[in-house]
Design a protein around this nucleic acid. Structure first.
Lengths: 226, 226
DNA sequence: CGAACGCTTTGGTCCGGACCCAACTGTCGA
DNA sequence: TCGACAGTTGGGTCCGGACCAAAGCGTTCG
């Protein structure tokens, strides 16, 4: 069981800057190198070195995109190690009921910067595609169909100003908590903002979101609207 | 979720000698400092330093006993971290069915040096105490009652030579896999040896033991013997 | 009692690797 | 085409901490 050599992995993890990077990535989303350097409190050059070692060690994967290099955890097993460590980190053996509940809320629904993520985020994207409101235009970007434009208008989001912003409109965003993508960009941000306004979602502690009891019913009603 | 500071824990784990010590302790039993030094391949003085840091960090607990200092993992959460790391250590994503089965066998029954441990080891001690075959003489040492001497004789173990060895007779031995103790010492070693001879147990790969299909029935029959 | 043993403490050496600076490559937007 | 920006590479410094030798301390056993 423990005949494997843990030393390389242990030394890889065992550096303050690298564990800070891993912890940041454990939040779930992919982050560019500069941001990770900032969070770890080191010079970008230093972060580059650390990231290379983490990638070589198979703990992190990179996704090059223009002049950015987005990094995320290589898989749920890496996250499992970090979670096990988090369980142990402080000498506070009992986790309060409050934090346990928050943890559950977090995988259920949460914000990723400013848009809906977690299980509900994945679900929302699925439903919008299924309802024919969204259409994939390449392997990660989406656009609203005419049906979609009508639907978001119905719920109180004006699609026109969203077209004119520089921001990405609706792009797939994957994190390790769910293996499937949710949406990032101007559209999901506006939509999430509106759903909170309408009370379908409520802000909870931190990035958590509480889902209204009749959220499912409202979502069904909305997406089946003529 | 990850707002805890993982750096101290990570740097504590992230040393070749210390992870070797932890991996050795993850096997389950308590080990003296010298043995850990040998396994980690460092000088005893070096091991002492590492062990102090591990104890201070709450990953390991010591149990002083004469001129020995026995160390074991501080709890199942520490073991969980090591297990999560072991899942990740080599780039061998698939664990063979064989090793999975071995893992299960190991918690069910295994040898600890030369005596029965695992769930069946705990069970055996419980049953012997319950049957009045064993009696606690202090907080960790046991002796055979007259009933017990008769019982072990019935199963084919002669208790007399066991009294004359220098070895501890029957002492509680705790590891992290089960929170309850099993027995170490001359008696359990002889008993385990005999149960293997009788086919109640069979040696499996490594320290694993396979339990015969009719083990429970035989154990019941034996301990309820007049 | 004295010797052997297990372990710790102290003291001093030394090397790996973490860090930043500065220069360079590649990308984006005007 | 040019400047701003993201990130990497190479070079050089420096400090933490890993290591062992030797001495010290308590335990065990003859």
């Amino acid at each position: 069981m423990f005949d494997r050599d843990l030393a390389p992995l242990a030394t890889l993890i065992g550096d303050p800057a690298r564990i800070a990077i891993l912890a940041a990535l454990a939040e779930g989303h992919a982050l560019p190198a500069g941001e990770l350097a900032r969070r770890a409190g080191v010079h970008p050059a230093t972060a580059t070195g650390h990231l290379r070692r983490l990638v070589d060690g198979g703990l992190v994967v990179v996704h090059e995109q223009g002049r950015h290099r987005y990094h995320r955890l290589a898989g749920p097993r890496v996250a499992a190690v970090l979670e096990a460590m988090a369980q142990l980190a402080p000498a506070t053996p009992v986790r309060s009921l409050r934090s346990v509940r928050a943890g559950k809320t977090l995988t259920e629904a949460r914000t990723c910067y400013d848009h809906l993520a977690g299980r509900r985020g994945v679900e929302l994207r699925d439903r919008l595609l299924e309802a024919g409101a969204l259409r994939l235009i390449d392997d990660r970007d989406h656009e609203l169909t005419p049906t979609g434009r009508r639907l978001v208008t119905v719920v109180g989001v004006d699609p026109h100003p969203l077209d004119r912003t520089r921001r990405v409109f609706a792009r797939s965003c994957v994190d390790w908590t769910g293996r499937r993508p949710h949406l990032a960009g101007a559209l999901p941000a506006a939509l999430t903002h509106r759903l909170i306004e309408l009370g379908w979602l409520t802000r909870a502690a931190g990035r958590g979101l509480r889902v209204a009891p009749d959220y499912d019913r409202r979502l069904d009603a909305w997406l089946s609207a003529p």
